[in-house]
Design a protein around this nucleic acid. Structure first.
Lengths: 239, 239
DNA sequence: TAGTGGTCTAGACCACGGT
DNA sequence: CCGTGGTCTAGACCACTAA
């Protein structure tokens, strides 16, 4: 591993275990450079990581300070990639199964053309899945993917994780996601598959997901019953 | 302005105006360093900014490439700070007014003590506001702030923007926000102030907001009618 | 005015991709 | 193997804070 990461890890540990205390300054950069037997630029690279994690703040002319409640914030930050696919989100909390409602191929409609930046002659997969957590239905996923970008999808892949297939089998890297979150009245499908009453609100996440090279590969809508899951997020707002 | 920012601005412009084309490589770092009459480290600092904005990707050994649809992505990214206070969110789209439903001072309850990391003897403001956009009610805000952190709030401040007061008058810097978004059935207050029917879902954002130094200063819940506003976000997922 | 972080240089060497 | 990005050095000077 690289020196600047090692140093960041070491300083992070000292913050978490209390060697560097909340609200107080850590040693100045020139001292740290001597301590770790390195140059100031490398120290700055390490400190940038910790700034990005929200653990420290630097004030020019004054010093570098551990934030109040730094260890608490560090926990929050890990939740930032909470929503990259359901499988990864749930983690060890239970067993995810997928009931495939529809798996077909067709040409895209106007909205899909716009969202996925494709032409009307670019065929897409149409995937509707009911996702279960420990055999309890938790969400309805409607997913559109261009066949040219994500080829050779199979029922077996859909039963497990599409994202795992994309990263492991296709060797692609996932980049930005553009999301819209809103509340909605329940539709017929929600009533059928999610057991919603007419007065039960639904939380919908509509998203376009891009590969690391900027090519959009997924336009999807995920719907959950209002009492079956929130969305957690940490917003940066770093100056 | 600093050199590395100027260079980042210049390269960004070349990407947007098509001088550097989607999917193709930009000149290598050593060439850029000569072009801009600077050192390679400075070029790398500039490129890091653009990587963070999602405009380029570097692949070690191969080169630095403009992402597909880079100019589109750059638009999305600007929406990432969409939700830092309603006033800033809406921008020029209309006139925000605030009707103050409650403005009082009390001791915090158990949940507020936990969220704001204060003691039961720390007095807090209790603020309930109805926010109007062009005289149409759009959201109900319930806000708790410790008096010790945000002192001397006035009706006048509440009628305008609390965030503006915090940054401009108190000279504080706002840091991370920890949010929970979910759908809910309408409460009595929603029916009264937001004119909700019983079948109209409500979108609620619950958040704890921290200052730049890590001190939490706001615990709030903002409720909107399901048809009066979504939440837009861009998620990073950078490797 | 002294101390601290921010920017910048002009190199060096290493890691990786593609030929 | 060559070309490219990633890491790292040992300095220098500037900008800002606080006494």
């Amino acid at each position: 591993m690289f020196l600047y990461k090692k140093i960041a890890d070491d300083i992070r540990n000292k913050i978490i275990n209390g060697t560097y205390k909340d609200g107080l300054a850590i040693p100045e950069q020139r001292v740290l450079a001597i301590e770790y037997n390195t140059s100031r630029v490398t120290i700055q690279k390490s400190l940038n990581i910790l700034k990005f994690e929200g653990l420290i703040t630097s004030i020019q002319g004054a010093g570098t300070f551990v934030k109040q409640n730094a260890n608490m914030l560090s926990v929050l930050d890990s939740k930032i990639d909470n929503y990259i696919g359901l499988t990864r989100e749930v983690g060890t909390k239970g067993i995810i199964t997928s009931e495939i409602i529809d798996f077909s191929v067709r040409f895209p409609d106007t909205l899909e053309i716009e969202k996925l930046l494709i032409t009307e002659e670019t065929p897409v997969y149409n995937i509707d899945r009911l996702r279960n957590l420990n055999n309890e239905p938790i969400s309805l996923e409607h997913t559109i993917m261009p066949i040219s970008v994500i080829p050779d999808l199979t029922i077996k892949v859909l039963k497990n994780s599409i994202y795992e297939y994309i990263t492991n089998n296709l060797g692609l890297r996932i980049g930005l996601a553009n999301r819209r979150i809103h509340a909605d009245k329940p539709h017929k499908l929600d009533r059928t598959y999610l057991n919603c009453e007419i007065t039960d609100p639904v939380l919908e996440v509509e998203q376009v997901v891009f590969l690391d090279n900027g090519v959009p590969f997924e336009y999807s809508k995920t719907r959950k019953r209002y009492d079956k899951g929130d969305i957690l997020m940490v917003q940066a707002n770093r100056n």
